[in-house]
Nucleic acid binder design. Structure first.
Lengths: 227, 227
DNA sequence: ATGGAATTATGAGTGTGCTCATATTTGTGG
DNA sequence: CCACAAATATGAGCACACTCATAATTCCAT
């Protein structure tokens, strides 16, 4: 088991002791991370993931080339950070949005996806290069296999929760794990469509979302499918 | 417009003139390509796409490092070759299999996917690293964007053809381009599931295929969805 | 304040995928 | 058979992502 990043045990003591003093180290660390992310976002958008080099990112962030890798294991991880944050963000948002709690499933899912798409809009230029790689397991011979899968576990549980609630309300039959799994595949399809959608305000994608979700749920409601 | 590979105009004259004499060049070329593919398949399976190096592939194939790139633009392209060949293969097979021509759509699609999965079984260890990259557009800033999309056009047209025939038979409503598009997303989901399926003979995947296809088509048959 | 431990920064070094000017091989017309 | 052109092979060289031994910084007990 390798520790890819230089790790610290800080924070544990901090959390217990004085919470008003963040400490010079933590502040610096956070500032550096923010600078990296800021510069990386700019370069990824302008040059794409492939076109932007870690050397340039480091230079413009004012750090040494090696320092970058103390913050992100790989360049790909750096790019994926934006995608991961978007998932976290939407989960928080959904938890807070109480009016959605009792809305019909179609509306919930539509809102979730729409919100996610909104969120990744600034990353449109490079997110396509990276999204699918995060989904895929690396080679089974590669020790990173599990790790890359874990990225999605939190999100899948989130979706699973939404679906389970709908199952309990009797909106849809019991789908089990496959429900969230199917949704993930569906979401990936939507993102792909979205990436190629040149209509104003991505209207076409929104229309497709609306129609396809309505259709899928209308169907699930009708039949009594036994899985 | 760059020509990435050293190209030849050979073959044109050959085709018109003497077809019994392949010519030393063409033979050598083909042999080299075969050796590369043989070695690459072995190494990709044993070490994964990331673990196998172009240096080792070249060495074991008995060619210089640079020669490899006269045959395949990138290492990724080399790996994708196996996936592309599989698509070609299944299209040929389907065209030849006359009994399938008038089979119900579910059976057709099931057969197609099952055949494709069978075909990629030897590549299981590394295909996951590569499949999704071929689907995705590279960055819009990257000139390779269109190219990587073109990989799928042939296959999508093939699926489109099958769906259109079913539309004309009245099996399903008219879906337009979205039909093939949805199928591709579905297929990607199945492949992902297949990659993680450890059941004997991938039974779970086959069961899922069966159920999900039957369900999807039963649904499409029922409603009169206007797109 | 001070020494020492824990943490973070550094950049020369490594092996990689890939390029390109050059050399070699193959095909063709005289 | 011989020049000449076209196609193909070659490997030194390049920029890249990433590593790691070492240096610099921060923290804390004394």
């Amino acid at each position: 088991m390798k520790a890819h990043l230089q790790r610290s045990n800080s924070g544990r003591r901090q959390a217990v002791a004085n919470r008003a003093k963040p400490g010079k180290r933590i502040i610096k660390k956070q500032r550096t991370k923010e600078r990296i992310l800021e510069v990386a976002l700019d370069l990824f958008c302008r040059k794409g993931l492939h076109g932007a080099t870690t050397k340039e990112i480091s230079r413009k962030a004012g750090i040494a080339e090696g320092t970058l890798f103390n913050y992100f294991e790989t360049k790909e991880d750096l790019a994926l950070y934006f995608f991961e944050k978007e998932a976290e963000e939407v989960m928080k948002w959904f938890a807070a949005e109480k009016s959605l709690r009792r809305a019909p499933l179609a509306e919930q899912l539509f809102s979730v996806i729409q919100r996610q798409l909104d969120y990744i809009t600034p990353y449109e230029a490079f997110i396509g290069e990276v999204v699918f790689r995060s989904l895929q397991p690396r080679s089974k011979l590669n020790p990173l296999s599990l790790e890359s899968q874990e990225r999605w576990i939190g999100y899948l549980r989130f979706i699973r929760g939404i679906l389970e609630a709908a199952e309990k309300r009797g909106e849809i039959p019991e789908l089990g794990d496959l429900g969230a799994y199917a949704f993930a595949a569906y979401y990936m399809g939507i993102v792909t469509y979205w990436l190629h959608d040149n209509s104003r305000g991505k209207q076409k994608t929104l229309a497709l979302l609306d129609r396809s979700l309505a259709m899928a749920l209308a169907i699930l409601r009708k039949g009594d499918w036994k899985w």
